[in-house]
Design a protein around this nucleic acid. Structure first.
Lengths: 144, 144
DNA sequence: TAGATATAATATGTATACATACTAAAAATA
DNA sequence: TATTTTTAGTATGTATACATATTATATCTA
């Protein structure tokens, strides 16, 4: 059994590299945002108010995990959370001014670091990989 | 900022799909092995004895994480661990009979599930993706 | 509309994943 | 060889990641 021929193994390793580059680059810029936290802030930037379940759906996440992510973002003052008037089970989450500021600081760094994740590939290969990843992830149903 | 054009985000999502397919397929077969546990057993299958640091290096892992993985594999009787005679800091890890048996049961399922992870891609696209992943992960130094 | 079903979020438990600090032991070097 | 540096593993703390169970609230349906 050769791990290096198994996409699952290679995907795990690239994900690992990706997370590390992200964390290190942001830390080097004095920011402390995880990839998931960044994704959450990004989604909230284009949707003024979202319930946690909607955030989970938009960035393809588990509801339980998102709860913790929002907890930490709220503690740091990056998002606000209040019970929805429409549905008292739901919590309306919004980006705060501080959250927007952090997001704007992070954006150029995150854009920049993408090519570092794929620095072993040529520009053309990077485009190919992104296209393949996009198609691979395209939502038919991997869960069915 | 569009998450869907960022390799980091797409890689995270594909990794997520990959982990879920792995977990569900193995559970459906009555086996409870995580991707990392499987990778560890696989490496030990081709190396009779390995120190934890060597395992970490071979499957590209953190030493602290591997410690926990080995703990759980040892608890379940899949590996044995004893202090190295050559270096009293190190622990020699080996596959047990039970571990080998679990590995042999898991192997065909894991081989099988790889194509399910990439089921949105054609055979040719799957090959292209694996080639690109291999090159992307190729060890120059992402950590430097 | 009452009872069944579904859903939003939380709580709990397990397993990565990694940084940092720590201990013990080995290796390097002055 | 004494001292410094490095290394192997563990401990601790934070943050995903997800399964399962629970609670509160909506929604569906008989």
């Amino acid at each position: 059994m050769h791990l290096n021929t198994m996409p699952g193994h290679m995907i795990r390793r690239l994900h690992q590299i990706s997370s590390q580059v992200f964390q290190h680059r942001l830390a080097a810029a004095g920011l402390e945002l995880t990839p998931v936290q960044f994704a959450t802030l990004t989604i909230l930037d284009t949707h003024p108010v979202l319930e946690q379940a909607q955030i989970a759906a938009l960035i393809a996440y588990d509801r339980a995990t998102i709860g913790g992510v929002i907890d930490r973002l709220e503690q740091r003052g990056y998002v606000t959370r209040k019970t929805s008037v429409r549905d008292r089970r739901a919590r309306d989450v919004s980006l705060s001014d501080a959250g927007l500021k952090a997001l704007r600081q992070a954006e150029p760094i995150v854009t920049d670091l993408q090519s570092e994740i794929l620095k072993n590939l040529t520009q053309s290969e990077q485009r190919d990989l992104i296209a393949l990843l996009t198609k691979a992830v395209k939502d038919t149903d991997h869960d069915a």
